[in-house]
Design a protein around this nucleic acid. Sequence first.
DNA 1: GTGGATGAG
DNA 2: CGCTCATCCAC
Length: 719
Amino acid sequence: MSSPAPFFASSPLSITSQRRTPKSRFTYKQLHQLKSYSPQTPLRVIAHVDLDAFYAQCETVRLNIDPSKPLAVQQWQGLIAINYPARAYGLSRHVTSTEALKACPELILQHVATWKEGDEKWAYHEEAFKHIATHKVSLDPYRMESRKILKCIKESLPEKEQRVEKASIDEVFMDLSAQVYTILLERYPELGGPPPYDDPSEYLPIVPTTVLDWKADALVETGEEDGEVKDPDWDDVCLVIASEIVRDVRAQVKEQLGYTCSGGIAKNKMIAKLGSGYKKPNQQTVIRNRAVKHFLGEMKFTKIRMLGGKLGDEAVAMFGTDKVRELLEQPLEQLKRLGDDTGSWLYNTIRGEDHSEVNPGTQIKSMLSAKSFRPAINSFDQGVRWLRIFVADIFSRCVEEGVLENKRRPKTINLHHRQGAQTKSRQSPIPQGKPLSEVVLFDLAKNLLAQIVVDGRAWPCANLSLSVGGFEDGITNNKGIGGFLVRGEEAKAMMSNNRSSISGSEPPAKRRRTKGNIKSFFGPPSKERKDFDAARAVLKAHQESTREEEDDNEEPDDEEFSAPPLEESKAKPMTPTTNRHESMDDSFGARTSPSAQLQIKAEPLPTQELRDHTPHPIKQQPYQLYQKKIDTFFCDKCNIHLPITDRSEHDDYHVALDLSREMRQEERNQPLPTSAVKKTPVAPKPSRGRGRPPGGGNGSGSGRAVEKGQAKLVFGRQS
DNA sequence: GTGGATGAG
DNA sequence: CGCTCATCCAC
């Protein structure tokens, strides 16, 4: 906390003569630390500004609706934002749109903008909620407004004395210390002089004003008799000034853009944030340092950032209270039962200590486009269609980030996939050195999906999400000087090019005819098999094109710029793969011909987890599964016991194994040996209930040489 | 690199 | 609720 308040300051020289002079609790040093945004000075002034019901306000502004009318933003059947007039009807985020209308018949419901398949831009569609199966929501309009607001806020502050952090789409932190320092010296020139005895540790003079004008700001009470207005010190003055600044910022945002927001002003980020939520909407709250203890003490600590979840629950359970006041009684050692670092953090936090800085230039680190499928989707083709939308979404956001101008650029692309309780993800680097384009992203994304599909159990898929990440700041124009100036033009051309190619038709998924014993084995041309083939074709084509790009690498830059349309790149003739490294670590084709070996190696199949027999529990099993003993089943093909939690993965393993064997057969144009086409390849729906007890089991299944406990089938692999 | 957990909004 | 974003961690 702050230093003890020496109402009568001591000075190194004449103690007696100074005795009578009342002093501030703060030193010259602490005052001057304001200039440099030092997180240590107790005079520091931080503000938090939070837009009121942001999405809802965006819609009232966009549609020029009277803001006193109740309005909610709809996403499918749910509400994601409710303005304050509507909240008066008791509406909250958990009600459906129909329930909301029942409670408030005059409620204005506006659905969020959506991307429609095939469209090149999101739009506000009529009756969008009916199109959950074909549209994906877009938050772009809100991101754009957020950007405008941030810009407006920054323009309301002096260019040289601002430090603004975007904390979320509708929140900012401002460190007003430097600006407040300047204003303070203007208003109180006596502070500008050198400290007595040139000693920065000397205390400041007292504040000349006896009464501060807090305007209409909500002032948090101190909980003390006369603490409200008595003896203002410089920290109070700083907060008054900061409060004026915040009031002005808010007025600017309102005047120029029409948005109301709430503010919190205090000595650090944590308190400021709590302050902005204290009185809403369209108000601001000052928490003076002398009020912090009271303010926090009355609060539930679960309101504090980071304590709103599991950690907060743990603390509540551990100490039997959710009140800050009561938690204050716990010594540090007790709090450390939550973990050393966590305990220390909590100890300081509930005492109002937070020295974290306001970080300006908070750039985005990743971006994601996702959709939950209701109902689930069931084919590679469907998945690819969504990928188009994701890519369009993400790429347009990349453009906003300055990717075309090479200001920033993502390094990796990642596809997440959920099937039932299982999630999978595949990622790949985004090739650097070339301009990023929609086609490039789409190609990568499609390849990632193909990887997931060939890995097994992909359908029905309940969720897909595509993200790019690892954004790097301007790898500024250090690269090849040639062909750099025209980038802007080319980028434009590129975008229109991409557009046509990306919305074009699918590359013809090469259908492999499956007949004879294969057919009898897998049944009629199953959906699974078609999918598998389509995915595999994509993988193969991708590898081909990758190889060609590598060959092209010596070519001048302008070649690459005219990215071939998707169809072309897929239709390129397959160049035989005679790459030395590829066969190097390949133990896959031990039983196959050399030529087949090379081809097979090109398939990233099957994946690590499918090759690996090491038992591991499947993700988010219901809690009981972790608690109770895990049964095992016996795989008579592998002659090995496995926990039943591994059952489905293990089955996938066999599916992949059989498929790859089958494919090898096809490549060689030879009949499949009957031994491979045997009975019960895989129990399609393993009955979870009856796992065989350990030890129960028959001997060898197939001729596969796999020993219990060391089931290691080595496949050639792939990145 | 894969994939979960956690948390905020 | 769904959709973003971020960070941390185990393997």
